[in-house]
Amino acid sequence: MKNYITAIFLMASAAMFAQEIKEESKKWSAGRPDGHAPISVMGDHMHGKGDWMFSYRYMYMNMEDLKAGSDDATTESALADYMVTPTNMPMNMHMLGGMYAPSDKITIMVMANYLSMEMDHLTRMGGNFTTEVSGFGDVQLSMLYRFFNKNGQSVHGQLGVSLPTGSVTETDVTPASAPNKTELPYPMQLGSGTVDTNLAVTYLGQSESVSWGGQLRAILRFGENDRDFRYGNRQSLNGWFAVKTAKWLSFSARLEALVVGEINGEDPNLNPMMVITTDTNNSGGNFLNGGIGFNVFVPSGALKNLRVGFEFASPLYQDLNGIQLKNKETITLGTQYSF
């Protein structure tokens, strides 16, 4: 009788253990190439208790030619109202990030960036000149909290703050100021100058060889910086779909709806009639962006958990406030390593 009881106990324990393994296998997993979102999406995933992750991203963003609302515009139309118009603005950004999970439900994230930007200009008199700026931007601190993770699906929220470590007083020489430097327009500044709140909620789902996700994010700015203005709020909705083609490779497609508010206030050192980028009426807009990319994941060996991601993105539609440079291509390349 005692042997029967022991056998029944062992069988029940094995069944419970098997069920636990089965339930565990249903959880969303980061241990696959599509276990992370496209590389351009931030705060998309969490980590298990005690895990660390360090990341580096390089982003190239280009703005070129002019747009008024949703229609293309010419430099002649801009120079009818302003003394100077920009014609091109490439930006390079290097982002360093770190994540640590003190528990299975909480992940802490920090991110810093270094930017370099150029802006080419055309004057009403037909002259050309370029301004340049580079330096560190704002530092972001965030906490991610997991609400649930089961049935191959996961939902987590993000509460973050952006610290105004980037400058809003960058200067360079222009033909009107030579040989002295003058303060540069709003798009050429390195930071926001305000303490900004970063809120997001992210949904993730995956099956055997396919994954999908969505993220709703808002960057809310309050008060004014030392130059008596604040940049507009940003609201975005990202959705993506990825296919795992091998244990180490996946391909993704992403669609983003983005709303950027106008600049509030006005920098007293900038003349809004000089160049279109110093007029706050020419800021913000609505965008629909699309991107395609891939993720590479090392599942085993000395480089286990190393990732490389790439994405090429471009606007599908943009409706700009006033007259502004058009958004063009954005290229993001990054690597992530967790342990």
Rank of each mutant, 00 (worst) to 15 (best):
M1V: 07
K2G: 07
Y4M: 14
Y4K: 14
I8L: 11
A12M: 13
S13L: 09
M16V: 14
F17Y: 10
F17P: 04
A18N: 10
Q19R: 08
K26S: 04
R32A: 11
P33I: 12
P33K: 10
G35P: 11
G43Q: 03
H47Y: 09
G48M: 11
G50Q: 13
G50P: 14
D51S: 11
D51E: 15
S55C: 02
M59D: 01
Y60M: 08
E64Q: 13
E64S: 13
D65C: 07
A68N: 10
D71E: 13
P86N: 06
M89W: 10
H94N: 08
G98F: 03
A101W: 09
I108H: 03
M109E: 12
M111G: 04
M117T: 13
D120V: 12
D120H: 02
T123S: 12
R124Q: 13
R124A: 15
G127A: 14
T130D: 09
F136P: 02
D138Y: 06
V139N: 05
Q140K: 11
L141E: 08
S142L: 07
K150T: 13
Q153F: 00
S154K: 06
V155E: 06
Q158S: 10
Q158I: 15
L163H: 04
L163A: 04
V168Q: 04
T171L: 02
T174G: 03
D196T: 05
N198K: 12
L199T: 13
L199A: 01
V201F: 01
T202C: 00
V210P: 02
G213Y: 09
A218D: 12
F222P: 05
N225M: 06
N225S: 02
F229I: 00
F229S: 00
S236A: 10
L237N: 02
W240S: 06
A246I: 02
L249P: 04
R254M: 11
I263H: 04
G265C: 07
P268L: 12
P268D: 13
N269V: 11
N269F: 14
T280F: 00
N282T: 04
G285S: 03
F287D: 12
I292C: 05
F294C: 12
P299C: 00
K304N: 00
N305Y: 05
R307A: 01
R307K: 00
F310Y: 12
L320D: 08
G322F: 05
I323Y: 07
Q324S: 09
L325V: 07
L325N: 02
N327C: 03
N327Y: 08
N327W: 04
E329L: 01
L333I: 14
L333D: 12
G334K: 01
T335E: 09
T335C: 04
